[in-house]
Design a protein around this nucleic acid. Sequence first.
DNA 1: GGACACTGGTATCCGATGGGAACTATGATG
DNA 2: CATCATAGTTCCCATCGGATACCAGTGTCC
Lengths: 129, 129
Amino acid sequence: MVTTSCGKPHDVYAAACPCRDMLDLLANKWSALALGALEDGPRRFGAIRTRLEGVSPKVLTATLRRLEEHGLVDRTVYPAVPLHVEYSLTELGRDACEPLALLRHWVVDNIDRFPGPAVLSDPAASVRA
Amino acid sequence: MVTTSCGKPHDVYAAACPCRDMLDLLANKWSALALGALEDGPRRFGAIRTRLEGVSPKVLTATLRRLEEHGLVDRTVYPAVPLHVEYSLTELGRDACEPLALLRHWVVDNIDRFPGPAVLSDPAASVRA
DNA sequence: GGACACTGGTATCCGATGGGAACTATGATG
DNA sequence: CATCATAGTTCCCATCGGATACCAGTGTCC
């Protein structure tokens, strides 16, 4: 049994376990997409921004900084002109990509099974006497 | 090639693709935990709330309603006394649990590799001339 | 009959987060 | 001197997440 800083076995369901924070970091739309965008090698800010269609620069910066802070990506500045910043996966980030890639692919593979905007159960619906 | 309502192959990176919405739904801390909480069979609101340590009733209600709306969980009301509401996975929800369970387990298995609150790169750090 | 408990939520308030648009800094280029 | 490119930052506002309080319906206890 692995005990931890929270004094218990690691458990994503425990509010105080650091796992909760990591899950919060990874189980996030932009994180999942950003890490995926780096799977094929380092990319620059602008390239990631283009790939993650629709992301605002503010949110992308925040996402990448958070990933960097947690050791999933490296940020390298090449002070050329114009400025050139490259983001790449760390060893840990590469490993984290596997489950995230599975999730992304599952979504793509199963999207047709999802109902469109459906009817919410009204209070009386689905009632079994 | 599978074409879709967005007129293109499904792609989570495309802003207009419904995949994006599904990813947003699944790549979410509370969704991932809530679906996992239902893996072993139907559970009642109070039980899920207890399992997802720290979730507020408002957020849990919203999460479950959203999952229901997208066909991942079923909500069944048993008008017994006291009121009894049961949430269970649909076929689709059960399938969605696989990649989410992998993600949760990856986090637990790799949590020790994550650096603690680390130093953010200051503008001068990591610069390669 | 009144107080209390159980269940599954709402209502309310507030700070954090997400998103869009505009703006900045630096230095090359025309 | 104006323009362009890169990589952001700043501002504002709408939405979301989280904490706390409260509610409705019914059964039981005293």
